[in-house]
Design a protein around this nucleic acid. Sequence first.
RNA 1: GCCGCGUUCGUCUAGGGGUCUAGGACGCCGCCCUUUCACGGCGGUAGCACGGGUUCGAAUCCCGUACGCGGUACCA
Length: 533
Amino acid sequence: MSSRIRVRFAPSPTGLLHIGGLRTALYNYLFAKKEGGTFVLRIEDTDQKRYVKDAEDDILQSLTWAGIVPDEGPGNPGEYGPYRQSERKERYLKYAEQLVDAGYAYYAFDTPEEIEHMKEHLRTPENPTPKYEIQSRMTMRNSLTLSDEEISRLLSEKKEYVIRLKIPDGERIHFEDAVRGPVSFESEMLDDQVLIKADGMPTYHLANVVDDHEMKISHVIRGEEWLSSAPKHILLYTYFGWDAPEMAHLPLIMSPSGGKLSKRKAEKEGIPINTKDYREQFYEPEALVNFLALLGWSPGDDRELLSMKEMVESFSLDRIGKSGAIFDHAKLLWFNEHYIRAKSDAELAKELQAYVKEVGIPHKQDDNDGLGDGSAEPDAGEGNISWPSLTEEQKKIFTDTKYMETVVRLLKERVSRLPDFLDSGSFFFEAPAEYDAKAVKKGWKEATPSLLQAYTSQLDIVEEEEFKAPLLKTRLKEVIEKENVGMGKLMMPVRIAVTGLGSGPDLFESMELLGKEEVLRRIHTAIEKLSGS
RNA sequence: GCCGCGUUCGUCUAGGGGUCUAGGACGCCGCCCUUUCACGGCGGUAGCACGGGUUCGAAUCCCGUACGCGGUACCA
């Protein structure tokens, strides 16, 4: 006999899965796994107006990518299906009518205009949002005010109607929230929530309660935006005579500028909001998951880098924080760097190849710096790129696994995200088109060309097979000794010539990888281009 | 407006009456390593929102204020 713990992630397919949703799913998942329970995915597609066709696919793909795989869901039904609310439509009406019969709900025939008129009438500065409730409902056209004949006539004429919950008067509704402790609401503050909409579909509130009950959900773990409607749900459980599940309302993920991290806000602040964005930009899923887990939860000790397994082992609802957590992209990048470095060169090379195949290579137009104060901005570099197709030559390079693995090995310690390999290692894939102005100014002097000549004449006589890092270094040392200059005097110009940049991975290893012919060509090109001007 | 929830370094957090001159991490700064940069190592910067209580003692408990956030739909 397995555990009775059952949790669900119940997104509505109105768009791509955003990271807040992903975190909610994650917490549900961690709790389920920790308790040996079941993690259910339920699609809450009761709003036909906002339905987005591909959203469900995206949700599942994103969850899978993150390693948060549902035990039950539309794709892998358990014994409580179907798992899409649109496919469970009939049962909600039945339950709602049951409530009507018991006197806990009623039919309402008001048109939207009539409701708006009522609210308009009641609206004052002190009460900007009038409700459909104990007072106002008696002025409306519903089964509380209409005669029985009138009601059955309207019903039989198939007039549009909704079913509303009859909120009781003067009750205080208490419940215990697993993360917040005791919470209570005055019933006066609730309005007569619509349970069944005019189109026959249930609202979230009804569907949610019915499904959680029918699917034997033991713990409802969801975002704090639901806290205010929890009393309505509690009321529904009571009226149905069901035990309410445990509730846990998660703190919201906030934007750096304050407020809920909405799509709009995130975009404005340069934060990828959809899980799909992270997939497409090849973030390490472990990094996102680790980061998200710690945004509002902590294992109770000083560990920060946790595998899914470790998170499962340490997870508990009472270690979830109560206040909103600001999304810190810089910290996410730190996690990402960590997980990149934890991967093998072969693994990374493969991913990089996949990335290029899918996306292409970025071509920087201008404003190419890589030096200077760039390190201050974690997100620098985006915006000025285009994605042209690869040349034959580049295809050859990118399919050369050995080559790619070396690139990865040389660059791994200096990238934050997978695409950065292409950015900071662009010279591995094409000769520098321009030279970093700062570096040139600092390291390219009058005497440079002759020094470079001296070095290249040494390199000229190196056999191709001998063109290895240690030898290249030795040759360079010999030249500077002979010319009686410091190492930087030669190394910097060589770096500029070969990479176009003032800094980067080990120069000699980079040269070895590029090969004799290419290196010599680049040095000669640089002398031509930089010495004239 | 009303209702609800919250408030520890810039950010994520530990801490739940004495062990707190508040710990860790990211970021930032400095030093070391490296004749580049990065990684790494070491060090530093910075915080209990405010005001009242309770107590021998409060970041921790209570009240109030301020501020923030959420909700206030035939959206979820």
